[in-house]
Design a protein around this nucleic acid. Structure first.
Lengths: 210, 210
DNA sequence: CCTTGATATGACTCTGGGGTAAGTTACCAC
DNA sequence: GTGGTAACTTACCCCAGAGTCATATCAAGG
C-alpha cells in the first residue's frame, strides 16, 4: 500500500507469553508506586512501549490486569512468609525472622508491598478473591503467635485474640512501611532496629543463630 | 410569568451560614463513609436536598469542601486528645484514657475517623496543610510516651524513637478502626478490651479511678 | 410597586480515562 | 506465492463527574 496509515502496526516478533510477562512487570511497578486509581492503562502502555489495545487484548480490562499483578505480588510475599514459618522458630524470634525475610524480598522490588495493600484497589470480584486468599493464608501465622502471647497472660477470650491479631498485623505492616519510607536503611540494619524495638517492649529475646 | 421554567429556584429562606453548616454535616458523613474519591458532589447535593451549583457557590470546589470537612473533623479529634492529655495521666494509663475518650467522641459520628485518614484525600494544598497540622499536634503526645518507654529500656536512639512512634500511632489507629468495625461494642467495653490487651503485653497497669 | 441583592437551580460544557472497531503488518505452513 | 493466524496500532466511542452560565424566585427597603 502506498498509504501507510498505520506504520507501526504488525507483529514485532514478541510471543504473547513474553509480552504478558513484560506488561505484568511494568504494571506491577506502576500500580505499586502510584496505586490502582492513579495509574491509567495508557500510562502502563507507554511505559511498556506498546499500545493500549494490546493490554486489553491480553488482560481484558484494567481490573483484570490488576488482579494478575496482585496475584503475582501475593504469591511472592506469601511464599516468603511460609518459608520463614517453616524454619521452626517461634514467638518473637519468628516475628523477627519473618520481618527480616520480608525486608530482603522487598529490597529489589519494594513496590510489591503497596500493591497488596492498595486502598484504591477495585471491588472487582477477581481481585478481592486473590486478596482474601492472601489474607487467609497470612492470618493463621499471626493468630498463632498472638494467641500464645495472650494465653501466657491468662487471657483466652477469642475476641481479644482477634483484636490483638489485627494489632499485630498492623504493627508488621507499619514496620515494613516505615522501612520502605527510609530507603537508605539496609534490610540487616532494619532487622536489628526491629529487635531493639521488640526488646524495649518485651525485654530481651533470644534469636536463632543466623 | 406564565412560563415557570425553574419552579424550584429562589431562596427558601435559609441563610448562607445555616446552609453551609448543613452541607458540611452531610458532606462529612458521605466523605467519611465512602471516601473522597468515591463521593461525588452530586451525591452530596442530593443528600442535602439542594442543587450542585449551590455547593460550588459556597465552597468553591470539591477540594474546598473537603478541606473544610477535614478541618472540622480534625478539630474535634484534636480537642479530645488534648483534653485527655491535660488530665495528668502518664504512660500506658494515658494511652487508655485517650483511647477511651476517642471511642466516646466517635460514638455518635464514627465517620469522622475515616475522614482524617482517607487514603484517597486529594493532594490539594489546603487539605494537606490541615492534615499536616493535625499530624503535628498529635505527634508530640505519642513521641513523649514512646520516648519514655525506650529510655526505660536504655535506648535513646532518635531514629528508633521515630520508628516506635510510627508503630504506636498505627496501634492506636488499628484499635480505633477495629472498634469501628464492631459497632455492637460499647466504648466502655472496648476500653476494657484495650486494657486487657495492654496488660497481656506490658503486664498489669494501674488505671486512674474514673 | 419596583429595584436590589441573596438564595437558588436547570441545563449545559469539558476533560480524563476506560474500552472498542477495524484495520495493518509480519511470519509461517504448505 | 498465498492463505491463515498471531501480533500490533490508529482513531475512535462513551460516560461519569467536576465545574459553569444564564436565569429565576423571593424578601426587604425605599
Amino acid at each position: 500500500m502506498a498509504t501507510r496509515t498505520r506504520p507501526n502496526a504488525g507483529t514485532k516478533g514478541v510471543a504473547r507469553a513474553d509480552r504478558e510477562e513484560q506488561i505484568l512487570t511494568v504494571a506491577c511497578r506502576l500500580f505499586g508506586e502510584s496505586g490502582f486509581a492513579s495509574t491509567s492503562v495508557a500510562d502502563i502502555a507507554e511505559a511498556a512501549g506498546i499500545s493500549k489495545p494490546l493490554i486489553y487484548n491480553y488482560f481484558g480490562s484494567k481490573e483484570g490486569l490488576y488482579a494478575v499483578c496482585v496475584q503475582h505480588a501475593a504469591e511472592i510475599l506469601t511464599a516468603e512468609i511460609e518459608r520463614t514459618a517453616a524454619s521452626g522458630t517461634v514467638g518473637l524470634a519468628r516475628a523477627v525472622v519473618t520481618l527480616d525475610g520480608m525486608f530482603r524480598v522487598l529490597e529489589p522490588q519494594p513496590w510489591l508491598w503497596h500493591l497488596v495493600f492498595d486502598p484504591t484497589a477495585p471491588p472487582d470480584a477477581a481481585t478481592q478473591k486473590v486478596l482474601a486468599d492472601y489474607e487467609r493464608r497470612i492470618l493463621d501465622f499471626g493468630t498463632e503467635g498472638v494467641g500464645e502471647l495472650l494465653r501466657l497472660a491468662g487471657n483466652d477470650d477469642p475476641t481479644d485474640t482477634e483484636a490483638m491479631r489485627a494489632v499485630w498485623e498492623n504493627v508488621f505492616r507499619t514496620l515494613v512501611t516505615w522501612w520502605l519510607a527510609h530507603p537508605d536503611e539496609s534490610p540487616a540494619a532494619m532487622t536489628e532496629r526491629c529487635v531493639r524495638l521488640f526488646a524495649a517492649v518485651f525485654g530481651e529475646i533470644d534469636l536463632p543463630t543466623s
